[in-house]
Design a binder for these strands. Structure first.
Length: 780
DNA sequence: CAGTGAGCGAGCTTCCGCTTGACTT
């Protein structure tokens, strides 16, 4: 029996610490929170000072029972959860549930998992900080009150099963407002001018110089006028200036920056980054991956120092201490870094290797010297114009940290040429080989990616490292936001070129505006957002979280009672909730698009029971209005009257095939064509409004062919072997069964199949039941 | 599997933050 029981939050952490502490200590993990507000109801007794009703969730009963056993046997219990308010609350809940006597309980904290830090922590135990615990209770109660009072308002006023909350609703708002900003963006064009000059040097050899005009022109006429002037102009270098520049490395990774860089450099989703990082952490290869801290332990800085000296030399070393700029950062852990710096690479999956390499490079580079440049700007005068051409050159003098790593940015649109410049001197005369002016479009603001949304949330201090990935998945799961690709459009631009004293004008085409893996609001997301902003603007305010965080801090310092703080928020909030429930109309996002030119009846667009629709005619009239669903690619915010009118053309007769009619329409499962009382789904690029008979026949033939291939073997009407998405499987009485790996499909007999089904049924019944429950839950 | 959009009402849905597996019909 061990004399000492240490409880931490994470099992991987427990394993590491146990090694440092020796055999008198047993280290166990609580697996995060062990208690939470009751799930069945509000879980808060409003009448009795907002008394929280805590419960141990079903999936935690086992671990709590184990901890109880261990605690009973131990002489001293060390509560070693994180030193932030959630960690303090975990320690408090543990002491309550495990019924720990004060004289048997020590609270210890450490910010890094190194032997020294842990031994030091054990030497300096303290008591539970109830102020910090109360700050957490306030946070928890506030979130529950907001979520569980706001969501039912949406069920009644918009649609059942929707949700709202302090964090998710603001995340959705960011995306909705960005979308509107983009939709309202007026794209102007301008003309930029660039030139290719020839320089003849003293010895007669020639070189080329690219330069850009310092000014842009707002119209084609102005650009043309300028090019005309250039026909007779002389070009001379009037100034060459050089100035030094430097770049510093980025700090080591936090959760948020890791998610951003893995997205930009490796194309990972934030969830993927977290799951790969979790694997690396559990394997002991990196430090904890949910952190907002930029700190590296002294031990880590020491080994990084040695590594840089050994690999690159002393001149590449520059020890730096980074301070977080994020307000409200709790810094309970280190920054994310490799556990062992001398491991440049690791064994593992391709994704694990790539992510590890990224973390390694970033940590190393953070302690390396600045890179230095020399920037040269050459100014070229034009004899008959006031505008100047500028040529820029950049020479890397010392690579420094760039030897290892360079951070990516979200918008890399700096396309000005930065070449190595030829030898030049002031007063050199230049001969233009070509001067051209190209029409450019102003760029609308960029849509959010998962990673850039995380960045924005972190700036607003909304959410925590452990919740960034879940937030992104929640708002998508609720149907407020979709992550998808959307095609761009062809657009034309004018290209003017002056060569050999004549100006040529071309109209060229480019493909622009295509989006890949971007976050778009859905119709329901927009309607819910507008409803919440209208009635609960204080909670949807981007500063709401920051404001309440300040109050949580005051509670943690013992300057404010958490009950008073909650009461001050709740009383007026609840009045607003009641008022909104009683006095507002249902919100459908209804909008008048215009009138039908044939009947003169109004056409509306709104969200109906089954999704967005267009409506022809009024609902209160004697004759029923006509309805039609929007296509998947259409949205209530942007659909035009013409597109709405087209929707009423469905179902549409496309033509004939094998003597039977082919009809295109939109059904429960999307656009389809029907033929001979069979149905065929349309492909992504097909529209039921425009699909032609030839294409329809193609789709029909394709489907028939595919169905043929689906059947591998058919024993009788009940039993067959089929080809599915995840490979070959057995279908028996409409139920599907997995075939064990290494089975020879060719030789499977009917009897073999029945055996597999039987085994599957007995062994897999439990799992299957679980799976079904989970699925049912997800559906809800 | 291939429209539906009325109205009533029972019983359901829902938050954020801390953790990891079990789950891939």
């Amino acid at each position: 029996m061990e004399a000492n029981l240490v409880i931490v939050e994470s099992p991987a952490k427990a394993k590491t610490i146990e090694k440092f502490l020796g055999k008198d200590f047993s280290v166990k993990s609580s697996y995060g929170h062990i208690r939470d507000l009751s799930k069945k109801n509000l879980g808060i007794d409003i009448e009795k000072n907002y008394n929280p009703q805590y419960e141990i969730p079903a999936d935690k009963t086992k671990i709590v029972a184990e901890l109880k056993q261990s605690a009973k046997r131990a002489k001293m219990i060390w509560l070693a959860s994180d030193e932030d308010r959630e960690g303090e609350a975990i320690a408090w809940h543990l002491s309550e549930i495990l019924d720990l006597p004060k004289d048997k309980t020590h609270r210890i904290v450490f910010h890094e998992i190194t032997k020294n830090a842990i031994l030091e922590a054990v030497k300096n135990p303290r008591e539970l900080d109830m102020n910090l615990v109360n700050a957490q209770q306030a946070r928890r109660v506030l979130d529950r009150l907001v979520g569980f009072e706001l969501s039912p308002v949406l069920w009644k006023k918009v649609k059942p099963a929707l949700s709202a909350g302090r964090v998710q609703s603001v995340a959705v708002r960011l995306i909705v407002e960005k979308e509107r900003e983009i939709n309202n963006f007026k794209t102007n064009t301008y003309f930029k001018v660039s030139a290719l000059f020839e320089v003849i040097h003293a010895k007669g050899n020639k070189s080329e110089l690219k330069a850009e005009l310092s000014d842009r022109f707002s119209t084609k006429e102005k650009a043309l006028a300028f090019l005309n002037k250039c026909k007779t102009a002389g070009f001379k270098i009037s100034d060459i200036s050089t100035k030094p520049g430097k770049r510093s490395p980025a700090p080591p990774f936090t959760t948020s920056t890791l998610q951003q860089e893995a997205s930009r450099k490796l194309g990972f989703s934030v969830a993927q980054t977290m799951s790969v990082a979790q694997k690396l952490y559990e394997a002991g290869k990196i430090t904890y991956m949910r952190t907002d801290s930029l700190n590296l332990s002294d031990l880590a800085v020491g080994t990084i120092k040695n590594e840089i000296k050994k690999e690159f030399g002393d001149q590449y070393l520059q020890i730096r201490k980074y301070k977080t700029k994020i307000k409200g950062a709790q810094e309970a852990h280190e920054a994310i870094r490799p556990s062992y710096i001398n491991n440049h690479e690791i064994q593992g999956t391709a994704a694990e290797k790539k992510l590890y390499e990224l973390i390694w490079k970033r940590a190393i580079a953070s302690q390396m010297a600045d890179a230095s440049f020399e920037k040269t700007i050459v100014t070229i005068d034009i004899s008959n114009a006031t505008e100047k051409f500028l040529a820029q050159g950049e020479v890397l003098l010392f690579d420094g940290f760039l030897k290892v790593y360079s951070e990516s940015t979200d918008d890399e649109k700096d396309d000005s040429p930065k070449d190595h410049l030829p030898p030049l001197k002031t007063s050199d005369i230049l001969t233009p080989k070509n001067i051209s002016s190209v029409e450019r479009y102003e760029q609308s603001p960029p849509r959010y990616t998962e990673a850039s949304l995380v960045k924005k949330l972190e700036e607003l201090t909304i959410g925590r490292p452990s919740t960034y990935a879940p937030i992104i998945s929640t708002i998508q799961h609720r149907g407020y936001v979709v992550k998808e690709d959307r095609p761009g459009k062809d657009r034309s631009f004018t290209f003017l070129s002056l060569e050999k004293n004549s100006i040529k004008e071309d109209i060229k085409k480019e493909y622009a505006g295509a989006e890949k893996s971007k976050l778009f609001p859905t119709d329901i997301g927009m309607v819910v957002n507008d409803f919440l902003v209208e009635h609960f603007d204080n909670i949807l305010d981007y500063n709401f979280t920051a404001t309440v965080e300040k109050e949580f801090d005051e509670i943690a310092l013992g300057n404010l009672s958490w009950i008073k703080m909650i009461d001050k928020f709740y009383k007026p909030f609840h009045v607003t909730v009641q008022h909104t429930m009683d006095n507002t109309e249902r919100s459908t996002g209804e909008k008048l698009l215009g009138n039908d030119p044939v009947s003169g009846k109004p056409i509306y667009v709104k969200i109906g029971r089954y999704g967005p629709l267009v409506q022809l005619g009024e609902t209160n009239n004697t004759d029923k209005p006509k309805f039609a669903s929007l296509l998947k690619s259409q949205h209530i915010e942007t659909i035009t009257l013409k597109e709405a009118l087209d929707l009423f053309r469905l179902p549409r007769e496309v033509g004939e095939y094998e003597g039977k009619k082919v009809v295109a329409a939109v059904g429960k499962f999307g656009p389809y064509i029907s033929h001979n009382s069979k149905f065929y789904s349309l492909k992504k690029d097909d529209s039921p409004l425009t699909v032609e008979i030839d294409r329809a026949i193609e789709i029909i033939k394709e489907k028939i062919e595919k169905d043929k291939n689906k059947i591998v073997k058919k024993f009788d009407n009940d039993l067959s072997i089929l080809n599915g998405r995840w490979g070959v499987y057995i279908c028996y009485k409409k139920e599907n069964f997995k075939i064990p790996k290494k089975t020879n499909i060719e030789s499977l007999t009917k009897e073999d199949c029945l055996v597999i089904i039987k085994e599957n049924n007995t062994a897999g019944k439990k799992n299957k039941q679980k799976g079904k429950e989970k699925k049912a839950k997800e559906k809800k």
